[in-house]
């Protein structure tokens, strides 16, 4: 029932993006999030789109699969689009239908904003699709490392994150199982009025909470039994390796940034 969601999922295939150092990928995504806002006309959005699709291609994750997984997001994008059509009243009037008027500016804004939204989602999805959660965590831990000096709990956060990520599939399975068990007891998760739907959440959420607490407790015990007592004195097993590919990818993004700067109005 939750099979189609791809946000946060990792697809194990061989690709240049998969081989990259997570630090490089994180930096790229972060930079991308910033430079998306540089785009403000057709050319610059075009450049961004080309870059993004190049990355999708380089990830070797089937495009159709990504699109299927982003279905929920499309509704959000559509919603933003419609919002802009309604609310932005700039430029020429494109057409009028009763009280409903679409301005040229509204249409343009709508398209641009949805595009921005879409590209952002796509790029961040690519990060998780091509990077195992633990790599992301390692990358973050390394990148944030300097903050340790300011008593920022980098290790604890990284560990928390890696454990939560590790348990996402487990909890998904669990959710699925509980949903099925309650369905067998007559709960209808797929239909009914809003009130019925809210009521049907309770038999799902409570068992899920309870089992998560139990898991957390057992996990803490298991960690303690294996000698875990905080970040101090710990060594690291994972080694991050920066390669030429990573430098190349960063340079590519720098070029894109440059292009954006040149072509924006």
């Amino acid at each position: 029932m939750m099979e189609k969601m791809i946000i946060g999922r990792y697809i194990p295939v061989e690709s240049p993006l998969h081989r990259m150092d997570p630090r490089a990928k994180l930096m790229i995504v972060f930079l991308f999030v910033c430079i998306v806002f540089l785009a403000n006309n057709a050319i610059t959005y075009g450049i961004l789109a080309v870059y993004t699709f190049l990355m999708v291609f380089a990830s070797k994750v089937p495009f159709r699969y990504i699109m299927g997984g982003l279905k929920i997001v499309f509704w959000l994008i559509l919603f933003t689009m419609i919002l802009h059509l309604f609310l932005t009243k700039e430029g020429d009037i494109l057409f009028q239908w009763g009280w409903f008027t679409v301005y040229e500016g509204g249409l343009r804004q709508g398209i641009f904003i949805s595009m921005r939204f879409f590209l952002l989602i796509l790029m961040t999805s690519l990060l998780t699709l091509t990077t195992t959660p633990i790599e992301i965590t390692d990358g973050l831990e390394e990148l944030l490392g300097p903050l340790k000096k300011f008593k920022f709990p980098v290790h604890e956060l990284a560990l928390m994150m890696s454990i939560s990520l590790r348990f996402i599939p487990t909890l998904m399975d669990e959710t699925d199982k509980i949903m099925k068990a309650q369905t067998a007891r007559g709960v209808d998760f797929s239909g009914g009025t809003i009130k019925e739907r809210i009521n049907s959440i309770i038999p799902l959420l409570i068992p899920l909470f309870i089992s998560s607490f139990k898991r957390a407790e057992e996990l803490a015990v298991a960690m303690e039994a294996r000698g875990y007592r905080g970040g101090e004195g710990r060594t690291k097993y994972r080694l991050l390796q920066w390669s030429l590919l990573d430098t190349g990818m960063l340079i590519l993004l720098a070029l894109v940034t440059l292009l954006l700067a040149v072509f924006r109005m």
């Binding site: 669990e174 199982k177 068990a181 007559g186 038999p203 068992p207």
Partner: peptide, 20 residues
């Protein structure tokens, strides 16, 4: 489907996980 489910009861593995 509900009328089917009424007649076929399933005890899932570790059914205690469904208590709420």
């Amino acid at each position: 489907l509900k009328s089917i489910r009424k007649k076929v009861g399933i005890v899932f593995q570790f059914p205690e996980h469904q208590l709420f």
